[in-house]
Design a protein around this nucleic acid. Structure first.
Lengths: 107, 107
DNA sequence: TGTATATTTGGCTAATCGTGCAAGTAAGCA
DNA sequence: TGCTTACTTGCACGATTAGCCAAATATACA
């Protein structure tokens, strides 16, 4: 793998890694349904410590998936990416194809 | 998060996690260009120990992304998923949008 | 000014991950 | 029956991750 190729796969992996966690997927889902949401609301939806949610959001931000803006003492997060719905469509097809296959194996 | 919702995000995360590694992304890329490829060839392309490549392939298989078949003493891997190209299109748009944004910040 | 609220960051621990080497399994060939 | 090749698995180790609590920061408000 030359340097360019390595960089290509590493940058892709960085984005996928940022998405690859149940809590962060839920954050993205919520954000896809609203224009912008504060950390406090997101924390309530996720149900873990606010510090944990804040770190998840930082990861999504570092990957370029969300952006944030401070209004008063609250910080609002917003999706930067529009194509995630089709991406999840693909992921779901993997999930269901695989489950179907596992059932086949079991039976 | 109720049980169904939890399961939904966990199954998505599992697939994304399986993809979220440079070596595994390259494996998927190679497999998307060929019908089926043996572990030995994939190992040469990746450039790490064959045992490591074998484990990466196992992860992709457990996630439902690839399948394998043994012919003689060789094991051939094949992509099970057709939609990955559009998925990576989305990922790339995140990467480039983000880089553009970082350059803006720097200047 | 002092106090309360929203968020991020530091520090810690337990769990998971990636890797190489060595050993095991399975198929082909002499 | 051995010997070789292709692959997987066990083991060990260093690196990364997710989580919580406590402390720091920043803003609003009395």
């Amino acid at each position: 793998m030359d340097k360019d190729e390595k960089a290509k796969y590493e940058s892709r992996a960085k984005v996928l890694k940022a998405l690859a966690h149940p809590a962060r997927l839920k954050l993205v889902d919520i954000l896809s349904e609203h224009d912008e949401v504060c950390v406090c609301e997101l924390t309530e939806a996720i149900g873990t410590d606010m510090s944990t949610v804040s770190r998840h959001l930082t990861q999504l931000k570092n990957a370029g998936i969300v952006e944030s803006e401070k209004h008063g003492q609250m910080v609002f997060y917003r999706l930067r990416v529009k194509c995630l719905t089709s991406l999840f469509g693909c992921i779901e097809s993997v999930v269901h194809g695989h489950l179907k296959n596992q059932l086949k194996v079991l039976s």
